[in-house]
Nucleic acid binder design. Structure first.
Length: 868
RNA sequence: GGGCGCUUAGCUCAGCUGGUCAGAGCGCACGGUUCACAUCCGUGAGGUCAGGGGUUCGAGCCCCUUAGCGCCCA
């Protein structure tokens, strides 16, 4: 095999091999295999790959590849979203560059451009998703505006309308003046900003004034009442009197309502039902007049009198100036306030009275909550259930119409008579015109898990692959998307669309800041893949995250995982290079194997069992970390080094057995790592002998209890500690690294083991010969592990005083640990209530520490005697 | 105002069911050209697991509370 893994060449080739070979299709499993299905959160066609995409692709691919290896009919359905607002924003920006607006070119031409743009750039994101190694079934790729999905969307609208759940009406909605469309509650972001609070006098009949404060003086022109608390002595006598709207002199009532907070501001409120959500509610309760003063472009209309035609912010200045001139102003204060801004575009949202389509959410939410309550749907991590319930319990009707062109056109028809009919086709008769509006993007993505499988047609895919299994996505779209899928799924298909919602966190920069173009801290996953390959990026994203928590992406970790890829490659090179041409994998029984082999196989099988448990609990990151640690710190650093004795030795059987073990461990780890690092593992797989087929469909490893061996692990631990001790001594006494030394061991209870494994010392710490002794040789330094004392004779190098000091330091560290252990074991509560194996383990640990302490103490005495 | 998360080595983060869980990577110090790998190997320094209280035989891990940071909802 080549000296290094050339990811640039291999990634493309392997992905093509997988995709062209149809290995991403669920049909590669046996026909009766249990299905496992994930719907990919469809990226916007406007987008290019960002860290969030890389995150979900990595996670979902781990899930899918794992289940595929377990023999399931694994299906990951990919697709893209038309992203109504985001796409339209981009297209309008492009038009603007040409000096045009969408109205200049008209709806038809605009949509042509939109489709052209989709054709041109919709493929870019899917190419980038491929680069990550995502094993999704592209033959089932969908787009939210595909014919089938569009039909589904219209059907749902019609159905919900028939069920009385879709209605139309004038309501106060969140209006985006720049985009000229309504948006839903979840599309409004509330930002804390320092604004101004304007205090002024509201004239009341009889020459009195009520002081009132507002953050938006222009809305004064639309006031239809002044409201005070019914028990407020300051204003009680004015209740029921008539106030006059400043500048317009329009008479309005002074009303009373307990809603007013007497402590806040002046304790009196101006009420503008047409331009404020709270005021709207209050206005409904008091049957107040509704005066709309604003046009859809946020200029004021004829109801604003002299201010008609002015932009809202310009009007604000003028109104205030004129009121000041009229002597009605009191003061202006800086005021921290919550400003509603559009999620797309960021402009200030205006509450505006408008005719829109809504979905009545209450009935849908009930079903959704029931499904989560009774466990048909679970959240990982669980805490998001609380967030989900809180939102569901307070759910508002969903404004689904958008005054945009790019999207699913609402299947409603308007007649000059004012009649409105809902249906996919135009009603019979003359004069019907189609509704101008399109649906909220999230209306179609809410159907995604089933619409992508053919619903509402009873397709084979729908039957076999729905409901899906895990919905994996970012917690930031819990309300936008996940909640809607759950509601729609239950309502329309009578099934929970998935049984598990796995939510990942946001990917931030290394210091925890949100990535943004303005900060210039955006980490482009494509750059990282160019530099390190897809595997290290995936592995880093997967292993540095835990469910639901944000991750701060540090490039140094990707670099480190790039090194891990190389390490794996080099391990493979070592393991395979020595294998005979006719090598046939056949792991010998544990009874025939040497100690290092029994140890490493025991550790391997524990690892496999752990990985299984962790995958079962969606702890993918921890599983990946453990495999990496085992492979590098145990297998490469210890077993491989130890194996060289047998490999280069005379004993043919031992050599063959060792090769079997090396191969088995590597091969198992490659399987375990495949979901995390698909490219390098698949490439390695091709270099392993006697393999049939591709790793992508190889079997996921299971733990074999026959190879679990606590005794071997304990023995190896002692040997490893002794070896570490020797390495340490050699450095402390600056023994030349190349120089061979001898060791004498008072082997205590490990006599046989040490006698038999002198070769390990030779290989791992350059000790030529290990002899068993009873007493300490002259001029030697020692290392103690339990009742084993290893002496390193270092003639001429030993400073007895320094050696005593070193040992006493060790004793000082040991003493408190012994004391703690003794007190634990002396504690009746611990001995009687802790699990027996825990007590047993503690006893053994204490015995070992005590032995070490005793041996060290003896040694110190000996040395002290020599000093005198 | 309600809710949630985070606070563990200089930095970025793990720590699953409470009992070798005090860890990793990077960084740092020191030492290494022997036949898998310098994209490497070895050794080491460094943390009263934010503060306080509690439950428990035993607590980074559970409960309460305080503080700081962040997020969501209103």
């Amino acid at each position: 095999m080549p000296k290094n893994f050339d990811f640039k060449e291999a990634e493309q080739r392997l992905y093509k091999q997988w995709e062209d070979g149809g290995w991403f299709k669920p049909e590669v499993a046996s026909p009766d295999a249990e299905p496992f299905v994930i719907s990919m959160p469809p990226p916007n066609i406007t987008g290019s790959l960002h860290a969030g995409h890389a995150m979900f692709c990595s996670l979902e691919d781990v899930m899918v590849r794992y289940e595929r290896m377990r023999g399931k009919a694994a299906l990951w359905v990919p697709g893209t979203d038309h992203a109504s607002i985001a796409t339209q924003l981009i297209l309008e920006r492009k038009l603007k560059e040409e000096g045009l607006s969408r109205r200049d070119i008209g709806r038809e031409k605009f949509l042509e451009r939109a489709w052209a743009w989709k054709a041109e750039s919709g493929g870019r994101i899917t190419e980038q998703i491929r680069r990550l190694g995502s094993s999704c079934d592209w033959s089932r790729e969908r787009f939210t505006m595909d014919e089938g999905l569009s039909e589904a969307v219209l059907d749902v609208f019609v159905t919900l309308h028939r069920q009385g759940l879709v209605y139309r009406g004038p309501r106060l909605v969140n209006w985006s003046p720049g985009l000229q469309t309504a948006v839903s509650d979840v599309e409004v972001e509330r930002t804390e900003e320092v604004g101004k609070l304007y205090f002024f006098r509201y004239p009341v009949e009889g020459g009195e004034y009520i002081p009132v404060a507002t953050t938006r003086p222009e809305t004064i022109l639309g006031d239809t009442a002044v409201c005070v608390h019914p028990e407020d002595p300051r204003y009680q006598h004015l209740i029921g009197k008539t106030a006059y709207v400043p500048l317009l002199n329009r008479p309005i009532p002074v009303i009373a309502d307990e809603y007013v907070d007497r402590e806040f501001g002046t304790g009196a409120l101006k009420i503008t039902p047409a331009h404020d959500f709270n005021d709207w509610t209050l206005g409904q309760a008091h049957k107040l007049a509704i005066v709309n003063i604003m046009n859809k472009d946020a200029t004021l209309n004829e109801n604003a009198g002299a201010y008609a035609g002015l932009d809202r912010f310009e009007a604000r200045k003028r109104v205030w100036a004129d009121m000041d001139a009229a002597g009605l102003t009191i003061e202006v204060k800086d005021h921290p306030m919550i400003v509603p801004r559009a999620q797309r575009g960021g402009e200030v949202i205006e509450p505006l009275l408008s005719e829109q389509w809504f979905v009545r959410m209450q009935p849908l939410a009930e079903k959704a909550m029931a499904a989560v309550r009774d466990g048909r749907i679970k959240f990982v991590p669980e805490r998001f259930e609380k967030v989900f319930f809180h939102w569901m319990e307070n759910i508002e009707d969903w404004c689904i119409s958008r005054q945009l062109w790019w999207g699913h056109r609402i299947p409603a028809w308007h007649h000059p008579s004012g009649e409105i009919r809902v249906g996919k086709a135009a009603p019979e008769g003359e004069g019907w015109t189609a509704d101008e509006d399109v649906l909220d993007t999230w209306f179609s993505s809410g159907l995604w898990p089933f619409s992508t499988l053919g619903w509402p047609s009873p397709t084979a895919d729908l039957g076999r692959y729905y409901p899906t299994h895990i919905m994996e996505t970012g917690y930031d779209i819990l309300f936008f998307w996940v909640a809607r899928m759950i509601m729609f799924g239950l309502w329309l298909t009578d099934e929970a669309p998935f049984h598990t919602v796995y939510l990942h966190g946001l990917v931030r920069d290394k210091s925890g800041r949100k990535m943004s173009k303005t900060y210039g801290n955006v980490i482009d996953p494509v750059d990282l893949m160019d530099k390190y390959g897809a595997d290290p990026l995936r592995f880093t994203l997967l292993t540095s995250s835990t469910p639901g928590n944000d991750i701060n992406l540090d490039e140094s970790r990707i670099e480190s995982d790039w090194k891990f890829v190389n390490k794996l490659w080099q391990i493979t090179n070592f393991v395979t290079s020595g294998l005979p041409d006719d090598f046939a994998p056949a792991l010998p029984p544990a009874s025939r194997l040497d100690l290092p082999s029994r140890w490493v196989l025991s550790a391997l099988n524990k690892l496999t069992a752990n990985a299984q448990r962790l995958f079962d609990n969606h702890q993918y990151g921890e599983a990946g970390r453990q495999v990496r640690a085992f492979l590098w710190d145990e297998f490469a650093d210890w077993y491989i080094e130890a194996s060289k004795y047998a490999l280069y030795g005379e004993d043919a059987q031992a050599k063959a057995d060792t090769q079997q073990v090396l191969f088995h461990v590597l091969e198992t780890c490659v399987r375990l790592l495949h979901p995390f690092m698909p490219f390098v593992t698949e490439e390695i797989w091709a270099y392993l002998p006697a393999r049939n087929g591709l790793l992508i469909v190889a079997q996921w490893p299971t733990s074999d209890a026959a190879y679990l061996d606590d005794k071997a692990e304990a023995e190896m631990d002692v040997l490893r500690e002794l070896i570490r001790g020797v390495r340490n001594l050699r450095l402390e006494y600056t023994v030349e690294p190349g120089k061979k030394v001898n060791a004498a061991v008072a082997a205590g209870s490990y006599r046989e083991s040490i006698a038999a494994h002198g070769f390990l010392f030779s290989r791992l710490c350059n000790v030529a010969e290990v002899t068993l002794v009873e007493a300490a040789p002259d001029e030697s330094a020692s290392v103690t592990v339990g009742d084993v004392v290893l002496y390193l004779p270092l003639a001429g190098l030993i400073d007895y005083r320094a050696e005593v000091e070193r040992l006493e330091k060790e004793q000082a560290a040991l003493a408190p640990r012994i004391a703690k252990s003794e007190s634990m074991l002396g504690n009746e509560g611990f001995v009687s209530r802790a699990k027996p194996e825990v007590v047993q383990r503690e006893r053994e640990a204490l015995a070992e520490m005590q032995a070490s302490f005793r041996k060290n103490a003896e040694r110190v005495d000996e040395l002290k005697a020599k000093i005198r």
